[in-house]
């Protein structure tokens, strides 16, 4: 009886000590997932998700404060990648992904104020003072930061037209 109690107590103490040591020496500073998820996000810090930059969004997603689908420019693709990385079941069929969008300038309204190009996180808008601006299609991430800045509402978001090369077969509807 005494032997049993003693041995169990010893066992408990030894294991507890081991755990304590392991906890101290094998501790990981910060969540390594944060950096990985941040790498999956567009990295333009556009702020559309409502968190401070992509790092903030990554932390929020991991802490379950935001859904994996919180990044509008990233769309379905980024959401799926994040969900896969953090092992989250994600029903993407419900995500309203209007497809990738880019900003466009209505040339007849643009007054060449240069405000939009200052806020563009990827320098995708080109133009000079009193000259009509234009958006570089390849560089625009569709973050929509410029839309608010335009004093004449010359900026608008338009979906990127689907081309033959980018067309995707729909998933079979049945079964």
């Amino acid at each position: 009886m005494i032997a049993a109690i003693l041995s169990l107590t010893l066992l408990g103490a030894a294991l507890g000590l081991l755990l304590g040591i392991a906890g101290r020496y094998l501790a990981v500073e910060g969540n390594p997932l944060n950096a990985e998820v941040e790498a999956l996000l567009p990295g333009t810090n556009c702020g559309q998700c409502g968190f401070p930059g992509c790092a903030g969004a990554a932390a929020a997603i991991i802490d379950n404060l935001a859904p994996a689908t919180c990044c509008p420019p990233g769309g379905k693709a980024v959401a799926a990648a994040i969900a896969e990385r953090i092992g989250l079941a994600l029903d993407l069929s419900g995500v309203a992904d209007q497809g990738p969008q880019i900003a466009t300038v209505s040339e007849e309204i643009c007054i060449g104020c240069c405000r939009c190009l200052k806020v563009c996180p990827t320098d995708a808008i080109v133009g000079a003072a009193k000259q009509i601006h234009n958006v570089l299609r390849e560089a625009c991430t569709g973050c929509a930061a410029c839309i608010e800045r335009c004093p004449t509402e010359a900026m608008s978001m338009r979906p990127v037209p689907v081309t033959l090369q980018h067309w995707v077969w729909p998933k079979p509807a049945f079964a």
């Binding site: 567009p42 990295g43 560089a139 991430t141 980018h166 067309w167 077969w169």
Partner: peptide
Amino acid sequence: QYFNHARGELAARERAKLRAEAARKLAA
């Protein structure tokens, strides 16, 4: 059709990834 769909989606994701990388570089 399942396979066509998957291939299209994978290609779209690949393109999105390349775009995101380019955007990240531009932002940096």
